[in-house]
């Protein structure tokens, strides 16, 4: 793409891929460690948090993209897609929370909130773009 404003997008994709790759590596390592010789004491907490850090990196990279993207239209469509993802994640979490509390629904780990958000934002992205075509 010869688009003049695509530099920020390219950097964003690279950074997301790096954070995603790091996440998989850390997760696999932590899973292996907890399955073979579960750590104890403070180390346990540090290692338990480790897979979350690359995910926090994804949040940072996303914020970075929104600040670096020179194209205001792209910024707007991105934010709209993010709002759809946020709406989906918050709605699902709220409804499921009450199902857990009152209807005996199985407990879902909170780390699923981000994948739900990502799914919503990812699906919304092309649909938001289509609205302006």
């Amino acid at each position: 793409m010869s688009d003049i404003a695509s530099g920020a997008r390219r950097r964003y994709k690279t950074r997301i891929a790096l954070a995603g790759g790091l996440y998989i590596v850390v997760l696999v390592a932590v899973l292996w460690l907890f399955n073979t010789s579960p750590p104890t004491g403070p180390v346990r907490y540090v290692l338990a948090v480790a897979p979350a850090l690359p995910i926090l990196g994804i949040f940072f990279v996303t914020a970075q993209y929104l600040m670096e993207e020179a194209d205001e239209f792209r910024r707007m469509t991105m934010v709209q897609a993010m709002l759809w993802g946020l709406g989906l994640a918050l709605s699902f979490s709220t409804v499921w929370g009450f199902l857990e509390a009152f209807a005996g629904a199985p407990l879902i780990h909170l780390y699923w909130v981000f994948p739900i958000y990502s799914f919503g934002a990812g699906v919304a992205q092309p649909l938001v773009g289509r609205r302006y075509r």
Partner: peptide, 8 residues
Amino acid sequence: DVSRQSVN
């Protein structure tokens, strides 16, 4: 200095 989608 914007994207083609913006112009459209």
